[in-house]
Each structure stands twice: as structure tokens, then as C-alpha cells.
Write a protein that binds this DNA or RNA. Structure first.
Length: 446
RNA sequence: GCCGCUAUCGUCUAGGGGACUAGGACGCCGCCCUCUCACGGCGGAAACCCGGGUUCGAAUCCCGGUAGCGGUACCA
């Protein structure tokens, strides 16, 4: 089995493209096949080197490696020209000066279900001759047979007058030369497939098998695009998602696994993936579920690994202690700093939290009691801190929160933080008492 | 317009003629755990697009309708 992933570098790698890449990878790795990476950069106006680098980078981040390539379509011009000449010589293609407008008016005259047929001319763009009768059948692994009546198909332009080739032609020639056995790509290519099949036929070659994946949609039900928020792999990465989670989640979108379990590593995914089981209906990308999957993977990382990733993500060092006490509370890397940044940068400025927890009845006194008790705790460990703070609660009576929340706000500035005992112990006696003192001073203005 | 594809809880899905009072997951609601927030546990609300067939029997098969989506380029 030889499969390929063939993105066009006209932008960043999108989630839909990433899933296509992933499914091809899963197929190759699960069945001992070969994955070929091909960059379809024949659209010179929109293809940039920067985009190529971005796509490669995204693929690497997702841990999707390839066996051959990247092959650049633009560098295969000689081979394309050769195949084109053959079609022209065989009369399977012809030159025509007909423009898009000519095609349109032809259809006005002959009916919209009648495909355009041109006359051979001495010069002009090259069109592939489509049979007038019969149908071209795509035997899709996922969808079964889809039939396209030849009569309704236009003779497609396969090369411009200057000889530069167009997508539907280049793809077929490249897939043929790379001996691709299975073309797995987005459903938006399904209507291109008969044209490519006709190219293979004109070339006298057998075609690969095709499998068209359902598209990924945004929450509005339309094809996923830039205006749907984080839609590229880079954006997901910047939003604090783990590659493990992104791979896992996008695999779920349409893979058709039995539903009793859905948290899988790349190798587990490759083991279970079956092309024939892929769903036929488009899936909506749901970031909330990605977040859940991400939290699951996050909690499965070793402390060292998580610290390394968070240090890389935040650009800060010395995070270990804070990570240790925050790990179980975050779902994404991005949630770490808002939760634990106060450890390094001091309490956050949150007037309303201060008023609710400290200015409110008993807050100041609770803080004073906590300060006294903490000043005497020895040694200053999580266990002793807990003992000290719980002692305060006992002596005062009432709910634990009446003591813990004022302390929390004094230290973190907000009403949400990692566990209070761990936090106090991590900050240490001096820092803790200092922050409580500053809160107490500030409380005079309540 | 034309050519296609698709149709199960809000979302992702299981289901491939009787095991369906339709299962799981995310989300949502309630309870428990609990120092906040998460995690975790328990419980709950929530779906077979409509209409015809076929069949003893249809979420499952067929046809039609409707809706959504994709394509319709000398883009990829």
C-alpha cells in the first residue's frame, strides 16, 4: 500500500488537512505501507515557501512522519509536459481557444446538463476529451460507487496555452508516477475524481483506489475555515493543546471506532483504524471536546514532561513547584499561567475578589488569625500548614472557606487557585506572611 | 441552474431487519467528594428529517420529498 498526503501550500495546515494527513499516516503505519508527502505548488501565485515550512512544521509537531518526499509538484514540469504531449499525440486531448465565457454560452445553447465539447485548434489551452456517452464510475472505499454521466462533464482544461499544467492533470500524473495505490483525501475532491480517472485512462494506466473523507465543519455547519476561530494546527498549538490530544481528537472525527472508548495514542489509533469504517457524514469540530481530550492527555504526562512543555509554552523557567500543584486543575497549557502565575508575579489585581473574600464579614480577622498561626507553623511544610490553617478554622468555628478564601485572595489575588495548603507551602513562610500583611494593609481601605 | 455527497441526542458517534423501553462520549442539569477551581463518582434531560413502499417485523433495505453540504475555474 502506498498512500500520499498532498497539501497545497496556500496557507497554514488546517484541521481538515491535518486529519487527512493523519488518516493517511494511520493507514500507512497500520498496514506497513508507505506515506509519500507531495507539495502541490503549481499555483505559483498563492504558494509560498513560508507556507511549505509551516505545513512541514505542523506535521512534525503532530508526530506525523513520512517515508518519501516532500516531492514538489512544480519541479515535475518536464514529466507533466511529456505526458501532455502523449495525450495530444494520441488525440485524447486537444488545443482549444475556448474561454470560460465560451463554455458558459455553449451551455446556454445546449442546456446546463450538457458538458462543453470543443473543436481542436492549432493553438490554445489543452482540453481533455471526455467521452460523449457512458459514465465514469468512482468506486470509493468509503462511499461505494458514485457515477458521473460523461455527457454532463465539460472537457476539462488540463494545461494552459503556455504549457503549464493544471491540478487535475498534474495530480493524476504524479499519483501514477509515485505508484500510489490509495488516494485518501477530502470529500471536496470527489467531483474532481472522474476527471482524474479520465486522465489515467487516456494515459492507458490503471487508477488508484479512492477514499473520500467527509469534510470537517465549523459550528455553523459550513466547511471549516479561518473565521471559525482556531482552525489551523499552529493556532491549536498556540491555544495550549497537546499534539497527542489533537491527533486523538481529530482521529475521532469520522473514524467510526466502537464508541466505548475514545482516548487513544497514535499507535493505538493506527492499530484500530479501518478505512472502510470511516463515516460518510461531515463532522462539526467541537473545541470543547478537544479540551476534554486534552485534559486527559495532560494529566497523563509525567511531571518532568509537563514542566518542560509549560516552560516552553510560557517562556518562563523554574516552574516545577507551581506545575506540581496545578497539574490536575488545568485542561490546556494556556490555563496554567492564569491559575498559577501569581506564584511568580504576585497576587493578581481583582478588586471584586478582594471585597468578597476579605472585606466581607470576618475576612480581616480570619486573615489575622491565619497569619498568627502560620507564623508559628514548624516546619513549614504542606502538612504543618494544613494543621495550622485547620486549627484556625476549628478555633473560630464556621466553614473552612471562611478562613481559606481570605488567605487565597491574599496570596493569589483571585478566588481561584491551586489547593491552599500546597500554595502556602510552595510560597514559603516569608512570602506568605508578606502577602498577608500587604492584604491586611490594603484591607484598611475596605 | 447543473453534477455529486450526506441525513441517529446541541456536538462526535455505536447501530448494518427482531438483542432498541436506541448504547457511549463531550456539553448541559442535579447530587456526592471538597478550601476555591478542576479531577473523579452517581443520577437526569436529550435523537432515529418527512412520506411512501418491501417485510410477520425497519433506525437498519428500496423509492420520492425536504434540508444541509461540496463541486461547478486556463485554483488546489
Amino acid at each position: 500500500m502506498r498512500v500520499r498526503f498532498a497539501p497545497s501550500p496556500t496557507g497554514a495546515l488546517h484541521i481538515g488537512g491535518a486529519r487527512t494527513a493523519l488518516y493517511n499516516w494511520l493507514l500507512a503505519r497500520g498496514q506497513g505501507g508507505v506515506l509519500v508527502l507531495r507539495i502541490e505548488d503549481t499555483d505559483r501565485a498563492r504558494s509560498t515557501e513560508e507556507n511549505v515550512e509551516q505545513i512541514l512544521d505542523a506535521l512534525r509537531w503532530l508526530k506525523l512522519d513520512w517515508d518519501e518526499g516532500p516531492i514538489f509538484q512544480s519541479q515535475r514540469a518536464a514529466r507533466h509536459a511529456e505526458a501532455l504531449e502523449r495525450l495530444l499525440a494520441d488525440g485524447r486531448a486537444y488545443r482549444s481557444s475556448a474561454t470560460a465565457d465560451d463554455v458558459r454560452s455553449y451551455k446556454e445553447r445546449h442546456g446546463h446538463d450538457r458538458g462543453f465539447r470543443g473543436q481542436p485548434e492549432a493553438a490554445g489551452a489543452v482540453r481533455l476529451r471526455v467521452p460523449d456517452h457512458g459514465e465514469t464510475v468512482v468506486d470509493d472505499v468509503i462511499r461505494g460507487e458514485t457515477r458521473f454521466p460523461n455527457a454532463s462533464m465539460d472537457d476539462p482544461v488540463i494545461a494552459r496555452a503556455d504549457g503549464s499544467v493544471l491540478y487535475n492533470f498534474a495530480v493524476a500524473v504524479d499519483d501514477l508516477d509515485a505508484a500510489i495505490t490509495h488516494v485518501v483525501r477530502g470529500d471536496d475532491h470527489l467531483s474532481n475524481t472522474p476527471k482524474q480517472l479520465l486522465v489515467f485512462e487516456a494515459l492507458g494506466a490503471g487508477a488508484p483506489r479512492y477514499a473520500h473523507l467527509p469534510l470537517l465543519h465549523g459550528p455553523d455547519g459550513r466547511k471549516l475555515s479561518k473565521r471559525h476561530g482556531a482552525s489551523s494546527v499552529q493556532e491549536l498549538r498556540a491555544a495550549g493543546y497537546l499534539p497527542e490530544a489533537v491527533d486523538n481528537y481529530i482521529a475521532l472525527l469520522g473514524a467510526g471506532f466502537a464508541a466505548d472508548e475514545e482516548l487513544f495514542s497514535l499507535s493505538e489509533l493506527a492499530e484500530r483504524f479501518r478505512l472502510e469504517r470511516v463515516s460518510r457524514n461531515p463532522a462539526v469540530f467541537d473545541e470543547r471536546k478537544l479540551r476534554h481530550v486534552n485534559g486527559w492527555w495532560l494529566r497523563r504526562l509525567s511531571l518532568d514532561d509537563l514542566v518542560a512543555r509549560l516552560e516552553q509554552f510560557t517562556g518562563r523557567g523554574g516552574l516545577q513547584g507551581a506545575v506540581e500543584i496545578s497539574a490536575e486543575k488545568i485542561q490546556t497549557l494556556a490555563e496554567f499561567w492564569p491559575l498559577a502565575g501569581f506564584v511568580f508575579d504576585g497576587p493578581a489585581e481583582d478588586r471584586s475578589a478582594f471585597e468578597r473574600a476579605i472585606c466581607a464579614d470576618g475576612g480581616v480577622q480570619a486573615l489575622r488569625d491565619a497569619r498568627d498561626s502560620l507564623a508559628r507553623a514548624e516546619p513549614f511544610t504542606e502538612r504543618m500548614v494544613e494543621q495550622a490553617l485547620r486549627g484556625v478554622v476549628e478555633r473560630r468555628g464556621g466553614k473552612p472557606g471562611a478562613v481559606f478564601q481570605p488567605v487565597r485572595v491574599a496570596l493569589a489575588g483571585t478566588t481561584v487557585s491551586p489547593g491552599i495548603f500546597e500554595t502556602v507551602a510552595l510560597l514559603g513562610r516569608e512570602e506568605t506572611l508578606g502577602r498577608i500583611d500587604r492584604a491586611l494593609e490594603r484591607a484598611e481601605g475596605c
